[in-house]
C-alpha cells in the first residue's frame, strides 16, 4: 500500500511537470494577440461611415458601383452593400414592410398605392466595421480581422469557409463567395481608401447620403455630422461598436 502511495505522489509530480509544459505550449500557441484599445489609439486612421437617411433617394448607384468595383458576384443575392426600402404603417411600428429587390441594384419599382399612406424611406446597409466585431471574434483561425485602421477585412488565402462568421454577424453583411468558397464582405474599399480615394459607394452617391469618414482626422466632416445630427447605429443592443452612423434612423429599422 505504501508503495502505491509513493507511486501516486510520483505520478502526481509527473502530472505537475506535464501541466507546466502544457501551459507553456498553450502560451506558445496563443501568441500574437494585440490589445484592441491600444490599437485604436495608435492608429493613423480610424475609418467610419456616416449615412443620412433623409438624403438617400434609393437610386441603387452604390449597390451597382460596389459590385463593379469589388467584383462581387452579380448573381444570385450576394451584396457587400445593399439598400432596403421601409414602409412603416403609422399604427404599427413593430411590423414595417421591408423590401430590397435584388438589393436595390436595379432601383426600386414604384410602391403600390395601398402603401402610400405609410411612412417610407430607404436604408443603405453595409458592414458596420464594428470595433468589437462578433464575426472577428468567432473566426477560429484569424482569417478575418480588424485592420489597424478599424476596417474588418478577410484573408481570402486563409479562410476555411466554415461560415461561423456569417452566422455571427447580426447585420447579415457576410456571404460565401461561390467562386472562391471563402467568405466575402465589404472591405470599405480598402484598396481605395489606402490610396486616398473614397469608397466606390460614396464616390457615386449623388446626394451625399453616405460619406466615408476618418475619426482620427479632426478636420473630417464626419465630426460635424456626428455633432449636428441625432445619430444612431444599427442594433445597439448587440454592443458591437458599430462604426456606421445613421442620422434620422427610424426606430423600426432592424
Amino acid at each position: 500500500m505504501s508503495v502505491d502511495r509513493r507511486e501516486l505522489i510520483r505520478t502526481g509530480g509527473k502530472l505537475l511537470v506535464l501541466t507546466t509544459v502544457a501551459a507553456r505550449a498553450v502560451e506558445h500557441v496563443m501568441a500574437g494577440t494585440v490589445d484592441a484599445i491600444q490599437r485604436e489609439l495608435e492608429a493613423e486612421h480610424w475609418w467610419a461611415m456616416a449615412i443620412d437617411i433623409d438624403k438617400c433617394i434609393g437610386c441603387g448607384g452604390c449597390v451597382r458601383a460596389c459590385k463593379t468595383e469589388n467584383d462581387v458576384p452579380l448573381e444570385p443575392f450576394y451584396f457587400r452593400t445593399w439598400v432596403e426600402r421601409y414602409r412603416v404603417p403609422a399604427v404599427d411600428e413593430e411590423h414595417p414592410h421591408v423590401d430590397s429587390p435584388n438589393g436595390g441594384y436595379d432601383g426600386f419599382p414604384a410602391a403600390s398605392q395601398a402603401d402610400s399612406e405609410a411612412k417610407s424611406f430607404f436604408v443603405p446597409k453595409l458592414c458596420n466595421h464594428c470595433a468589437h466585431s462578433p464575426c472577428v471574434q468567432v473566426c477560429p483561425v484569424g482569417a478575418t480581422f480588424e485592420s489597424p485602421d478599424g476596417v474588418v477585412l478577410v484573408d481570402k488565402t486563409y479562410c476555411l469557409g466554415c461560415r461561423y462568421c456569417v452566422q455571427a454577424c447580426p447585420y447579415g453583411c457576410r456571404f460565401i463567395d461561390p467562386r472562391t468558397h471563402t467568405v466575402d464582405k465589404c472591405t470599405l474599399c480598402y484598396h481605395r481608401i489606402s490610396r486616398g480615394l473614397t469608397t466606390a459607394c460614396c464616390e457615386v452617391c449623388p446626394t451625399g447620403a453616405r460619406a466615408l469618414g476618418d475619426l482620427k482626422d479632426p478636420d473630417d466632416p464626419i465630426h460635424e455630422f456626428l455633432r449636428t445630427n441625432m445619430v444612431h447605429v444599427l442594433k445597439p443592443q448587440m454592443a458591437t461598436g458599430a462604426k456606421v452612423y445613421y442620422a434620422d434612423l427610424d426606430g423600426s429599422v432592424r
Binding site: Q137, V138, P140, V141, C159, G161
Partner: peptide, 20 residues
C-alpha cells in the same frame, strides 16, 4: 467546409476567443 484542406489551420493559429 469551403476549404477542407485548410482545416489544419485550426491547430496552427487557433483564436482564443473563438468558440469554434
Amino acid at each position: 467546409l469551403g476549404h477542407p484542406e485548410r482545416s489544419f489551420e485550426m491547430y496552427l493559429t487557433p483564436k482564443t476567443d473563438s468558440a469554434m
